[in-house]
Computed example of a mutant assay.
Amino acid sequence: MSRPFERSRRGFTLIELLVVIAIIAILIGLLLPAVQKVREAAARMSCSNNLKQIGLAIHNYHDQNDKLPASRYGDYSDGAAFGGPFYSSSSWSFLALILPHLEQDNVYKVGNIPTSTLAASPALGQSIKTYLCPSDQMSSIRTFNARSRYSQTNYVVGLTNYKGVLGSNFNYGDYANANPAFVNSGDGFWGANGLFSLDRWKTSVTLVGIADGTSNTVMVGEDIWTADYANGTQPGNGFSWAHSVEATLTCAMPPNYIKHANGVPINTTSLDQAEWGSYHGFKSKHTGGVQFVYADGSVHFVRDSIPLSTYRAMASYAGGEVLVDAP
Rank of each mutant, 00 (worst) to 15 (best):
M1A: 15
T13C: 05
L18E: 10
A22I: 12
A22K: 03
L27H: 03
L30S: 03
L32N: 01
V35R: 12
V38D: 13
C47T: 15
K52A: 14
L56T: 12
H59P: 02
Q64E: 15
N65S: 08
S71L: 04
D78K: 10
G79E: 09
A81D: 07
P85E: 14
Y87T: 12
Y87M: 09
S88W: 04
S90N: 08
S90C: 03
S90A: 10
S91L: 06
L97V: 01
L118W: 01
G125D: 09
I128N: 07
I128T: 08
K129H: 13
S135T: 05
I141T: 12
F144P: 04
A146V: 06
R147W: 02
S148C: 02
V156P: 02
Y162F: 15
V165N: 04
G167L: 04
N169M: 05
N171E: 11
N171A: 08
A176D: 13
N179S: 06
N179E: 07
D187H: 10
V218Q: 00
D223P: 01
I224W: 04
D228M: 02
N237R: 05
G238Q: 05
W241I: 07
A242L: 08
T248C: 09
M253W: 00
M253C: 15
N262E: 15
V264Y: 15
T269H: 09
L271W: 03
D272F: 11
S278W: 10
K285A: 14
H286I: 10
G288R: 07
G289N: 06
Y294V: 01
Y294D: 00
D304Y: 04
S309Q: 05
T310F: 07
S316D: 10
V322E: 13
D325Y: 12
